[in-house]
């Protein structure tokens, strides 16, 4: 990562934990996981709690839907690490790689429910334009998304706009495809806590 403290500035116990994870998983600890261990009282503890609430808390959206939103927001932000991580996680959650690829390639033709398609489109507009109109939101409501679903999607969008910015600013290292798959399995089993 671009700051040395994010590479080396961990207490001995944390370094030991990283070494154990590496040994038992066969993969290095991803930078997205390392950064929440850096001075966790400043950022990581509360960031993990918010991200877990958004991604795994009660919602009418499935875990796969929310992982797809995370991948989609990251695609708009062009954050390579998070695109790969959440494409892998959405794919495992849905057990459907084609659907995830299609959604990230062409929203108009992808095999998605209308509420999800229009919600993704709205999250894309908000992330790209950094503003949103009531008209944009009316289209999502007209497609059948409920206000609660929209609020839940906005929380996912906020969580990944934070993570994407840190990933790009600090230059999170890309993983091998196998390591992204292992990370996805972990996120589906344990979430973001």
């Amino acid at each position: 990562m671009r700051l040395d403290v994010l590479n080396h500035g961990y207490p001995r116990r944390t370094k030991l934990l990283f070494a154990l994870i590496r040994r038992f998983s066969g993969h290095p600890v991803p930078d997205a996981a390392r950064i929440v261990f850096y001075r966790p009282d400043f950022y990581g503890d509360r960031a993990k709690h918010f991200t877990h609430e958004a991604m795994r808390g009660p919602s009418a959206w499935s875990v796969g839907d929310r992982e797809l939103m995370a991948a989609y927001v990251s695609k708009v932000n062009r954050t390579a690490f998070c695109i790969a991580a959440h494409t892998a996680t959405a794919t495992q959650a849905y057990q459907d790689a084609d659907r995830v690829t299609a959604a990230l390639t062409d929203l108009d033709t992808a095999d998605l429910t209308e509420p999800l398609r229009e919600t993704l489109r709205m999250l894309g507009t908000l992330t790209r334009e950094r503003t949103l109109t009531a008209d944009d939101m009316r289209k999502v409501l007209a497609a059948g998304a409920t206000p609660d679903q929209i609020r839940d999607a906005l929380a996912v969008c906020a969580a990944f706009n934070i993570t994407d910015r840190l990933a790009d600013t600090f230059a999170f290292a890309l993983l091998t495809p196998e390591a992204f798959q292992a990370g996805a399995t972990y996120l589906l089993k344990r979430g973001y806590r």
Partner: peptide, 29 residues
């Protein structure tokens, strides 16, 4: 450490504004 904190603040600040803009558009709609 100072730069780390300021980057986190900038990232969280912008994302909070996006969240609020979305909620405001929803409230209006």
């Amino acid at each position: 450490d100072q730069i780390f904190e300021l980057v986190v603040c900038a990232a969280v600040g912008e994302s909070t504004r996006l969240y609020d803009a979305g909620l405001a558009a929803l409230a209006e709609a």
